[in-house]
């Protein structure tokens, strides 16, 4: 039972990581209806930029600021060069464009910083929390707990931002109906730029935490793909959905690997989240928190 809890908690905490990436997807999807496949590449690019500048001797906070700046510029450029010309195209076209964007971002990031794996140090030790170890004999890493804490903070901030700021309200209006929002004078393109910048920020946070855990390398983009089943579970438009979906995917993936993996040769976490999401889709196509859609003819 102890072992079960350890696996579960480890899974939940890695699920938090997926949630981070999924959050970026949700933000962009909500505001612009674009399913941004490049979110994973953005995570990778953000982490790589941060590490790259740190290696050049730039202090922590400055590197963070620069990386954030780079992500904002990237977001603005994406809006200007990719999204604006594709306005009113079918969603699937936009989706394919973001696959193209993924390649561009990966190529640029690796071209600028090289392709070797780097470590990323945030100054938080990756060691078990002592009192949990003593009282319940369960090993939970401080670092993972820190990651969860940051996730909670980020979600709270985003929720407040959406709920109480003027930009947040405009964002919600845009998410509901582009044309209606436009007609009451909400500057659509400015809103999109802001959303891409915020998504870039979320990608940066995800990249830092993830990079510190597993190193910054190209494989980051693949792990980030796991955010897709998370979205299917949680629904494309729901921030709580992204979080809950991430936790479910993270925990079931680890549990499945530990308890089922041995029967089929292991490594099933490469596909288990997708198959689970798929099975889930067949039962509830709109996701846990998504809205049911009725075709009108």
């Amino acid at each position: 039972m102890q072992f079960f809890f350890e696996v579960l908690i480890g899974g939940l905490l890695s699920g938090v990581m997926y949630s981070f990436v999924a959050l970026g997807f949700v933000l962009i999807y909500k505001a612009s209806g674009v399913f941004n496949f490049a979110q994973g590449a953005m995570v990778f690019a953000a982490a790589l930029t941060f590490v790259g500048f740190q290696e050049l001797g730039v202090p922590f906070w400055l590197a963070l600021l620069i990386a954030f700046g780079v992500m904002v510029v990237l977001g603005i450029l994406t809006e200007r060069i990719v999204l604006r010309p594709l306005v009113n195209q079918p969603p699937i076209t936009l989706f394919m464009a973001t696959i193209g964007l993924t390649y561009v971002i990966e190529g640029l990031a690796q071209g600028a910083w090289g392709a070797n794996v780097r470590g990323l140090e945030l100054g938080i030790q990756d060691e078990p929390i002592e009192w949990l170890m003593e009282t319940a004999n369960i090993s939970v890493s401080k670092f993972d707990l820190f990651g969860a804490g940051v996730a909670a903070l980020l979600v709270t901030l985003l929720a407040l931002f959406f709920q109480y700021t003027r930009i947040g309200r405009a964002l919600r209006a845009v998410a509901d109906d582009h044309q209606a929002a436009l007609s009451i004078g909400i500057p659509l393109q400015q809103i999109w730029r802001i959303v891409w910048a915020v998504a870039g920020f979320v990608a940066l946070v995800a990249g830092l935490i993830w990079g510190a855990r597993n190193g910054v390398s190209f494989s980051l983009t693949f792990t980030a793909l796991k955010a897709l089943p998370v979205l299917i579970l949680g629904g494309f438009t729901s921030i709580p959905g992204a979080i809950v979906g991430g936790l479910i995917i993270g925990s079931t993936e680890k549990l499945a690997e530990v308890y089922l993996g041995e029967y089929v040769g292991g490594g099933i976490d490469s596909w288990f989240p997708y198959v689970m999401a798929l099975a889930f889709l067949l039962v509830r196509p709109e996701g846990l928190f998504g809205e049911k859609h009725i075709d009108r003819v």
Partner: peptide, 24 residues
Amino acid sequence: PSISSNLQLVVFGGLIIFFLIVEP
């Protein structure tokens, strides 16, 4: 020479975006 593979990524991705916009 390692630039070639990254250049490839950027050109591929860029072309996809270009075609989707200019000649879907």
